[in-house]
Design a protein around this nucleic acid. Structure first.
Length: 376
DNA sequence: TAACCGTGGTC
DNA sequence: TGACCAAGGTT
């Protein structure tokens, strides 16, 4: 007979003792019932509205999301309304919220929900995962919060909370760490009120078990927390290592004609995908303006002449340092189609401001106008 | 799998 | 003021 082998990946393996598990669940749920914030998406049971909140909250703070969520639901109150809308209208409501692929995927998923599921969002995490923009987290969040499925989720908050309670080692991105966190979340979520329990974990991470200066004296599960017991709360989890931002320089065409500016809509992938902008072309940092001008001519498919320089707008993203060089240009013929863009349009500054446009380009537009782009 | 994808708040 | 970060997903 061979000796019994230690099984490392059995889903039946118990990570948390039953008594501790029930204690954690009860304390967190009771704390949540007393202390949860009154957030607008906690006042609805509409799966679509809950889905929307989860997508907007990805890598985005609650206070930022609230007004966007309310405007978006007012304009697109149902999956059908969203699915029927043109993508540029959706992006216009998303303007300034960032990570615009979220809006593109949301729109695409709404159309799939109409086509594949009769307009009703599927109710299981497994089905939700087949829709664009649903990863493991969002599928678990919508399945548990909107439909009551005991589906686990791990976001940044949950990862921090569980890392501390169970003293999980490893940095964000470490595979063994992620697997252990998901396994812990899976064990803990089974039971009553899975949606509330998941939200309790996240709420606890957001308000008490914070990244900096956690409020351990107010913590409902302090007695269960290994990091607290061992004085390691401040070192768990270790900070994420971030790559230095890369520089990116864009030559921006400021082409004015009779009070209007030429606007272009970008290709739908990559940075600022599908958004409107003053027509821009990436250049090297040391590219002279004359050469930048010919790059813009190529992108627009039109002859343009450099008329002057209207300044540079700088904008810091998480992983990019953007420089937007505003080049005043003119041309004899006005292009209506361009090889590098989805669409062209001549707009007054007010019209341009209502388009779906990145914050970087919005600042560039304001800078161009105040530098006298529309004056002769 | 590691790089890419935005923004505003916080200290 | 600049570095760090937030209810992640895609390729």
């Amino acid at each position: 007979m061979s000796p019994p082998r230690k099984r490392k990946e059995s889903s039946a393996e118990r990570l948390v003792e039953p008594g501790r598990r029930e204690s954690l669940r009860t304390r967190l749920l009771e704390w949540y019932d007393r202390q949860k914030r009154d957030l607008p998406w906690r006042r609805t049971r509409d799966p679509y509205a809950i889905w929307l909140s989860e997508v907007m909250l990805q890598q985005t703070q609650v206070a930022t999301v609230i007004p966007y969520w309310e405007r978006f639901l007012q304009r697109f109150p149902s999956v059908e309304a969203l699915a029927a809308a043109p993508l540029p209208d959706v992006l216009a409501l998303w303007r300034g919220l960032g990570y615009y692929s979220r809006a593109r995927n949301l729109h695409g998923a709404a159309q799939e929900v109409v086509a594949r599921f009769g307009g009703k969002l599927p109710s299981t995490a497994a089905e939700l995962l087949t829709l664009p923009g649903f990863g493991r987290y969002t599928a678990g969040a919508v399945a548990s919060i909107a439909f009551g499925e005991p589906a686990p989720l791990v976001d940044g908050n949950v990862a921090r909370v569980l890392s501390r309670i169970f003293e999980v080692e490893g940095a964000p991105g470490d595979r063994a760490r992620e697997a252990r966190l998901w396994a812990l979340a899976t064990e803990l979520v089974h039971g009553e009120r899975p949606g509330d329990f998941n939200q309790a974990l996240m709420e606890h991470g957001a308000t008490v078990c914070r990244p900096e200066s956690p409020l351990c004296l107010l913590c409902p599960v302090r007695e269960e927390c290994l990091a607290y017991r061992h004085g390691r709360v401040d070192e768990l989890p270790p900070a994420r290592v971030r790559a230095a931002p890369k520089r990116m320089t864009l030559a921006v065409a400021v082409w004015a004609h009779e009070g209007r500016l030429l606007l272009a809509r970008r290709a739908e992938k990559g940075l600022f995908g599908g958004l409107w902008e003053l027509p821009a072309a990436e250049v090297d940092d040391d590219t002279p303006d004359t050469e930048s001008t010919s790059r813009l001519a190529e992108a627009l498919g039109a002859d343009v002449t450099l008329r002057g320089h209207l300044g540079t707008v700088r904008r810091q993203l998480t992983h990019r340092a953007l420089s937007l060089r505003l080049l005043r240009v003119t041309g004899a013929t006005h292009p209506t189609h361009a090889p590098a863009f989805r669409e062209l349009r001549w707009c007054t500054p007010d019209e341009a401001s209502s388009l779906g446009m990145s914050t970087a380009m919005h600042k560039a537009l304001e800078a161009a106008v105040s530098a006298g782009a529309l004056q002769a």
